[in-house]
Design a protein around this nucleic acid. Structure first.
Lengths: 346, 346
DNA sequence: CGTGGCCGTTGACACGTGTCACCAGGCTCC
DNA sequence: GGAGCCTGGTGACACGTGTCAACGGCCACG
């Protein structure tokens, strides 16, 4: 008992250089290492109240943090979540990453980012496979960079899918539909009867963009309007003007344009002004994102406000469900997540 | 030998569900596991050419990928790099993350993102400590969220620092100085004799912003100009106008304003226009970032172009130096990394 | 008094890797 | 011809954890 007493009388929480292990905690608490493991993993029902408390105090005193490597090795799975980010400029990627990382941090997971690169077609999949095999992550969140069969490949390697397009998390898909619908309905409400969809040029295989364009087309059909054109806009004034000029030539004025994000919306808006088209009289523009940039310029951008934190909540729930026994995720997203920000471009 | 022959005659590269281990590779190659380990870690000088080839082929055939958990456990360090991101809106965080992640991916490292949150003062440090202790990362890259003593705490826990402010990687600091100097010199070149620095409001303790403001002050002193004012600008029109109005009242016109990023520059520019100040005659604005947004609007933003990939090269070298025996990182950044993008606001 | 069951606790194993120290055999050199 | 070196390769240990099966002690029940 003298040893334990000395230990308990020791320094403030951070004395050690090498991190304490469960062996140290066990010694200090005067129990076996398996007891430590059980207590710290909340297998607590079968231990005496006093033992539990002793172990917890010892762990706290030593500042014990379980080794991720040890855990991963024995569990066959790490507490990491891989986040596959497309090279598409979708709505404020940084905020999305931050929201997911923050959520998962609360669950004890860390986020490993994996960015798509331009390259040979299978290259991104190969790199991702390598990461998944070596890290054995608790889950993979795909922000839209993977095709369904690529997702299948990853899943068959034993990686839990948390992609928007998997059945586990469908929140993001619903979100995309809701956004595009709001855009289209807003334009129609503001009196535009000719609609178009503007996506970023050169974003090969952007599933979200295509999905949203399709939704706009659906809404047009519902309202008995002609099918919308789709234009590709570069983030550069001359190219944007060319694209818009072509649209105005074929579809006439006025035209209401739903854009895949706020940057594209800015490009379209200022291209219109440069072409001496009246905004919003001849050209209506609505973006997505509700970021600050669109509200700083003149004319202020009309856009669909977007609460990232609410939108990624389903991802959080899906991971929680997988890590601990959290309740099955609810699929629905609150309707008021997406709100129309009325600016001066519609 | 029959077993090995059967193995070598087996299926295409991805047959297995559970990842192959080095034991499998050893069996297939007909050597011991330690030989596999040595060969695959390029301790190759002491083995026969034929053995090396056999091991490599076996590994390739089985699609062998070493387990990160196993490696970490025995090495006491993982192949992860933690990236601490401040909640400051510095120049295009997403691009920086992507560039660093891409670089480190080539080195076989993965990037774990850790975002600062608003919260109790020591909270971020605590969370970061926990991550470092549990993950034992190969390095920590700080994008400016940590104070020097917080960095010391982390380093004393045995985590290699790759912060811009550590002596190992000083590239980012140099970059900040170079950027601010370019901004100031550009404004002076364009004829402004009264200078100011605009940083984002409410970004408590932004070390980069303070550093850049100090550099602008230095340049003013060099040129014999009055010390620059510093204003805090919110990303919202009314507040930006208030801040700018106050500046114009105290410092008169014309005034040249160096901004901490392009978003702030946009806010200032359009605030000036709303205040019926002439841009660039009365108010000159130069941003940082060279992102597309500033070039889309009218007037086009003058800004300091910024090649993120070049700028993070020093981080890459520092990690390479630590992981493998790569050459000691060279501190200098090529001068032409930062170029003046001449817009219509100066 | 003997036996079965519960409670609290523990010993032992497995996970996959890097590397130190060692070994067998062939060669050279005295 | 034996001692010592070089080449090519291996056995064993350590890293830190989660959990299965087992174990001693105690009480209740027959």
């Amino acid at each position: 008992m003298t040893i334990e007493s000395e230990g308990l009388a020791a320094l403030p929480p951070q004395p050690r250089r090498p991190g304490a292990t469960s062996v140290d905690v066990a010694r200090l608490a005067g129990v076996s290492r398996s007891t430590v493991s059980h207590v710290l993993n909340n297998q607590v029902t079968r231990f005496s109240e006093e033992t539990v408390e002793r172990v917890r105090q010892a762990a706290a005193q030593l500042g014990y943090v379980p080794s991720a490597a040890g855990r991963s090795l024995v569990l066959g799975r790490s507490d990491l979540v891989v986040l596959a980010v497309p090279n598409t400029t979708l709505t404020n990627v940084q905020d999305i990453i931050e929201a997911i990382a923050s959520d998962l941090d609360d669950l004890g997971c860390s986020v490993v980012v994996h960015f798509d690169r331009g390259g040979a077609p299978g290259d991104n999949l190969t790199r991702l496979q390598h990461v998944v095999e070596t890290l054995r992550p608790a889950g993979l969140v795909d922000l839209g960079s993977l095709s369904p069969d690529e997702l299948d490949v990853l899943e068959s390697q034993g990686c839990a899918l948390l992609s928007p397009r998997s059945q586990h998390v469908r929140g993001v898909d619903e979100g995309n539909v809701a956004i595009a619908r709001r855009q289209a309905v807003h334009l129609i409400d503001r009196g535009y009867t000719t609609l178009a969809f503007a996506l970023l040029v050169d974003q090969r295989d952007d599933p979200f963009g295509r999905m949203r364009a399709a939704v706009v087309a659906d809404v047009c059909a519902e309202y008995g309007l002609a099918a919308p054109s789709t234009i590709s806009v570069p983030l550069e004034p001359a190219g944007a003007q060319t694209a818009l000029c072509e649209l105005l030539r074929t579809r006439g004025r006025p035209v209401g344009i739903a854009c895949s994000n706020d940057e594209v919306a800015l490009a379209v808006t200022f291209a219109a002004l440069a072409l001496r088209a009246a905004v919003p009289a001849d050209v209506g523009v609505v973006g997505v994102g509700g970021g600050s940039v669109g509200q700083l310029v003149t004319p202020r951008l009309s856009t669909i406000g977007f609460d990232v934190r609410t939108s990624v909540a389903s991802v959080r729930q899906a991971i929680a469900h997988r890590i601990g026994g959290a309740p099955e995720p609810a699929a629905a997203i609150p309707v008021d997540t997406f709100t129309v920000v009325q600016g001066e471009t519609t």
